[in-house]
Nucleic acid binder design. Structure first.
Lengths: 351, 351
DNA sequence: GTGAAAGCGCTAACAT
DNA sequence: ATGTTAGCGCTTTCAC
């Protein structure tokens, strides 16, 4: 204990020196109890007498003791940590979800580790990090895994919930909007409004959301005897969508209706159409987005969009993850939530 | 080892059962070496012969071994984790910073733990979490600490970098824009454009950014012989700013120029002015924001704003934090970066 | 109710 | 270069 003595006499006084924190042993010594008594005292179901509880808390407060959760994790084999993996936070749809998830897990007494999946890179490095840090569950924000990657985690009984992407195998939970019907509605609505040349602005190539929305859009057109006039890709990003919009609208026979795979891109189309091509929206160009981010409702944009129930989605996803963490027998679920058309000024009124 | 035997014969085969992960001991046994050899093999400066390295890696790959970083953290007393604490991610200014920070720390081999500071609540709970989880550094996104709270962390030699808030004491680093001069410029610009009634839309009450921008604004007005006509508060949030804008513009003598403490609020003012009060911007109402988020530059908004160098800010902050983590002797710095006026259509042209 | 003792999975001396 | 040993700070039997 001489070591701790030196800590208290000079370690705290001088700045800059790397010192170890207060341990349960220090508290035990000051309180005159055993180290295990201190440990019990900081456990939820403390079997300690009121008298010792007092002594220990007093000593703990004096020393500024906080249980080291790393040591706790090692012995209990539970990190009390969940991971959130994301691609990009440019879309407020995802930053909102992250914020909600963060608050939710924090309330549940869990820590949240954040992992960024770089667009180009493989996600294997992220998976490695997830396993090394022993997270107890993973929330994937618009991240796809193949079956093998998912198995790496689920084999270690680390549950996964994927938001806004669908995968073809079981074993992971997923929560997403009804992309197909969203696309379908967009097509039917545009046809009903009397448009002729329908373009699709895709999100990220090969993502389930983008593909399903496109498939629904094409099916919706087909059922009205119409077909896709043109398409381009905007990677779900504003800047890329701006470039795509310019390409689409520069055509000698440009589309008169564009369905974009998310609002961010739809708004880029709107900016380009109005301010670069001087088209009136919706008379000369109708635009529909997806997500219904708050900006879509701003009167300047008045973007018709398919609202994804973001509050519901993140709540279902986080609760599902917690359930699976607490009971590993829980069957992973595939939840598909309805999307709701929000008709605004970026599409013509019917008739 | 009988335990591990049962693990391998049935644990992996059956699903749903909670099993422990592969440890360095398992790998050692399979490779026919000591456990410490395995440990060395996964350390940066491995002093192992090529032969054993091969054997170990082969065994590790076979078993799917990954070092348990919790155990490593316990012995090395370093969690390889930094924390980011935020209030809200509604403003893309912060979600962008978070994304950048996440990628930066990940590249440096650090984990990132995310903590949400609830608006009303004290952040003592967050501080408790930071200490318990033994983070090695803390990035505060627009979070203020008082001296005592900061000392809790710095006494444990956990460096803190505060972004976009300033505090009056030393011991923590801070990176922010030059709020005062930003406000000063806004005032001078509005006066030069010929406006008469100047309103300030404050951010969150008592935050350094909001106060400094207001003080600069008032000083800028005063130097032109003008003064503040009215002010209101929007809590840095879109919705609250919308309400504030309605209050300001409903006055019998409404302002003809509003300086908002951030772009999100400025855009709310713009929406209300144009679409609810049918005012032309900038002829009847000039608007200036702060931050220069991407949306500000969209032609529909063309918001004059004071650009904060977000890329620079987050880079300086993260690098500073890493420096302080690696060398505890590093003196905390207070960095104030210049803000750059971006003149756009929401203010009249001069003369 | 309380303490002694045995680890959790790893790293880091210290021998060899 | 490799193995042996002693912990990191905590939780959790197990006696008492």
């Amino acid at each position: 204990m001489e070591w701790n003595h030196s800590l208290n006499t000079q370690g705290l006084a001088r700045g800059g020196m790397k010192k170890r924190g207060v341990t349960s042993k220090d508290v035990a010594k000051l309180a005159g109890v055993s180290q295990s008594a201190v440990s019990r005292c900081f456990s939820p179901h403390a079997k300690v007498s009121e008298a010792t509880r007092q002594k220990i808390h007093k000593a703990a407060r004096e020393l500024g003791y906080r249980p080291n959760s790393i040591a706790r994790s090692l012995i209990t084999r539970s990190s009390q940590t969940v991971a959130v993996v994301f691609q990009s936070l440019e879309n407020p749809f995802y930053s909102t979800m992250l914020e909600r998830a963060s608050r939710f897990f924090q309330e549940q007494g869990y820590f949240l580790q954040l992992f960024a999946a770089s667009p180009g890179d493989s996600i294997d490095d992220v998976i490695d990090g997830l396993i090394r840090s022993q997270v107890e569950g993973v929330l994937m924000l618009a991240i796809t895994l193949d079956a093998e990657q998912a198995a790496m985690l689920t084999d270690l009984s680390i549950p996964i919930v994927i938001i806004n992407r669908t995968v073809a195998y079981d074993g992971v939970s997923q929560v997403s909007g009804d992309n197909f019907h969203g696309g379908y509605w967009a097509a039917q609505h545009l046809v009903r409004c009397g448009h002729q040349r329908f373009a699709y602005l895709a999100g990220l190539d090969g993502t389930s959301t983008s593909d399903q929305r496109r498939d629904g859009f094409i099916a919706g057109l087909a059922d009205k005897g119409a077909e896709l006039h043109s398409q381009d890709i905007g990677n779900y990003r504003y800047d890329d969508a701006l470039l795509a919009a310019r390409r689409l609208l520069s055509s000698s026979t440009p589309p008169d209706a564009i369905f974009a795979a998310n609002d961010l891109m739809a708004l880029a189309v709107m900016e380009a159409a109005r301010h670069e091509f001087h088209l009136s929206v919706p008379e000369e160009l109708a635009i529909i987005g997806f997500d219904d981010v708050p900006m879509a409702a701003w009167p300047s944009h008045a973007l018709t969009s398919l609202a994804q129930p973001v509050t519901d989605m993140i709540a279902r996803a986080t609760e599902l993850l917690m359930t699976q963490i607490h009971d590993p027998e829980t069957i992973p679920q595939h939840i598909k939530l309805p999307v709701v058309p929000m008709v605004r000024g970026s599409t013509r009124s019917l008739r």
